[in-house]
């Protein structure tokens, strides 16, 4: 565990020693606050609903921007030669790196909580829904980040890692939307529940309603652990190639 912690600290400081983490957090906060206050003043409703509905679409772009460098950068500079020559198991490196990126995202999410305080001060929101939505944000982000980590481990080009991650996450989000499911007609209609189950944002919106369903939790746990497992496998495979 000490090894994981050492990798975690190293990655975290690489995020915060360079502008990436700050740019990410500031832009994320700027966009979410703007969207929040716009609806807040426009419709004068003290609710965070519009804020949370936009989260899956923001994460689709923001999280791949955090995960893209995790492996691709070290591949490119060659520092992974040094890193992988240390007495570490592959999973220890994967986990340490992943948790550091997750921390950057969680910090950004936590920094949006003043919005909830504003809502609380001006009205009487349903706190269960807000807490559930925040939980949903963490689950959703954790899964997207795991996917981005896996993609980053396959390339030495950060831009490629970013684009491919966005495409995959967008695909997983859109597949469960009515936009897609309404095209599943005739015999294909049996696929609708599967498409809806697969949809990244669907589970988020059900958690956001304040209903914690174990199926949603299982979905996110699966979608987080599977890409991380594949990351370990892809790193092992690259040694044999």
């Amino acid at each position: 565990m000490r090894q994981v912690l050492a990798i975690y600290r190293k990655e975290l400081r690489l995020y915060f020693d360079s502008p990436i983490a700050y740019i990410f957090i500031i832009v994320f906060l700027a966009i979410t606050s703007w969207l929040f206050f716009r609806t807040f003043f426009l419709i004068r409703v003290s609710s965070m609903r519009s804020f949370f509905t936009i989260i899956p679409w923001l994460c689709m772009f923001f999280i791949p921007a955090v995960s893209m460098r995790l492996w691709a950068e070290e591949r490119k500079t060659g520092s992974n030669e040094l890193l992988m020559s240390l007495p570490l198991q592959e999973w220890e490196v994967v986990l340490g790196k992943y948790l550091a990126a997750l921390t950057v995202y969680v910090v950004a999410i936590i920094l949006t909580t003043p919005l909830a305080i504003v809502v609380g001060a001006l009205g009487s929101p349903e706190w269960g829904v807000i807490v559930g939505s925040y939980l949903g944000c963490i689950f959703l982000g954790a899964a997207i980040l795991a996917i981005g980590t896996f993609i980053s481990s396959l390339t030495s080009n950060q831009i490629v890692a970013f684009i491919v991650s966005v495409i995959i996450v967008a695909g997983l989000t859109i597949v469960g939307q009515p936009l897609v499911t309404m095209f599943l007609q005739g015999p294909l209609i049996v696929l609708v529940p599967y498409a809806e189950w697969l949809g990244l944002a669907n589970h988020f919106s059900s958690i956001s309603r304040g209903v914690i369903d174990s199926r949603d939790i299982i979905y996110y746990i699966l979608l987080t652990t599977l890409p991380l497992y594949l990351t370990v496998k892809s790193i092992q495979a690259s040694k044999v190639g």
């Binding site: 992974n80 040094l82 020559s85």
Partner: peptide, 15 residues
């Protein structure tokens, strides 16, 4: 058991 110096000495430049 090994100490290894990779070719071209890749290090963490930001540290």
């Amino acid at each position: 058991l090994l100490g290894y110096l990779p070719e071209a000495t890749p290090l963490y430049d930001e540290m």
